[in-house]
Every structure is written in structure tokens, then in C-alpha cells.
């Protein structure tokens, strides 16, 4: 599988106290470990098991994901705009890899 790519929609500007919407999607098979390949061998599980949104390194929202999350997970969550800085989305893979994307936001 090609390296996962993360797409997100996060506003670049917000007013202090505004609740912003964060939409994010990562390309990932989210292989459940329940399927078999053509030879009858079980395809090992490989999913994103954790998703973390941080704003200037403070955790906003996180999620523990299980096999019932769809392939190419597409999620929406929210954040309260308090100060300008960086919003980081982190996707933790079963393999131990962490895929991240950082967006800048200006809060006025």
C-alpha cells in the first residue's frame, strides 16, 4: 500500500471563542484481520487504532478506533478557538507508524 495521505479541512482563521469544524480523511485500508486472501491465508490486521487532535500540543479530542471504522476513515470533530498556533492531526497505525499533518491557524 502506498504511504497514507491525509486530507483535511481546517479553517485558516477563526475568531476567539469560535467553535471550528475539523474534517479529516486518511487513505488507509483499515485491514480488519478477518479477511482471507485468494490462497486462504488470513490477511493480518492493520488499522489506524488511534486518532489524536492537538492544538499547540494540548489534546483537543482523541479517538480509539477499532476494526469497525471504515476504510479511508473520514472523520469530523470540533475545536474551540483560543489562540493562534498549530493544529496537529495524528493517526497511529498498528504497525507503530504515526502519520501526522499540521495546519496553521490564526485566531483573532
Amino acid at each position: 500500500m502506498a504511504a497514507p495521505t491525509i486530507k483535511s479541512r481546517i479553517p485558516a482563521k477563526a475568531k476567539k471563542g469560535e467553535i471550528i469544524e475539523i474534517k479529516a480523511q486518511i487513505t488507509h485500508d483499515m485491514e480488519t484481520g478477518q479477511r482471507k486472501d485468494a490462497a486462504g491465508k488470513v490477511i493480518p490486521r492493520k488499522i489506524i487504532n488511534k486518532f489524536v487532535v492537538t492544538w499547540n500540543n494540548d489534546i483537543v479530542t482523541s479517538g480509539d478506533w477499532h476494526t469497525a471504522m471504515s476504510a479511508n476513515p473520514f472523520v469530523t470533530c470540533y475545536a474551540l478557538a483560543t489562540e493562534s498556533g498549530k493544529i496537529k492531526l495524528a493517526f497511529h497505525d498498528d504497525s507503530g507508524e504515526v502519520y501526522e499533518q499540521v495546519s496553521e491557524i490564526t485566531v483573532e
Binding site: I19, I20, T32, W55, D58, I59, V60, T61, G63, T67, A68, M69, S70, P73, F74, V75, T76, C77, Y78, A79, L80, A81, T82
Partner: peptide, 14 residues
């Protein structure tokens, strides 16, 4: 957390 602003999440499930 209170920083979430709004108690709502959306995603796609199997």
C-alpha cells in the same frame, strides 16, 4: 475535552 467546544463527532463505520 472542554477544548473540543462541541460534543459531536462523525465518522464512517462498517
Amino acid at each position: 475535552t472542554p477544548k473540543s467546544g462541541k460534543a459531536e463527532v462523525a465518522f464512517r463505520m462498517r
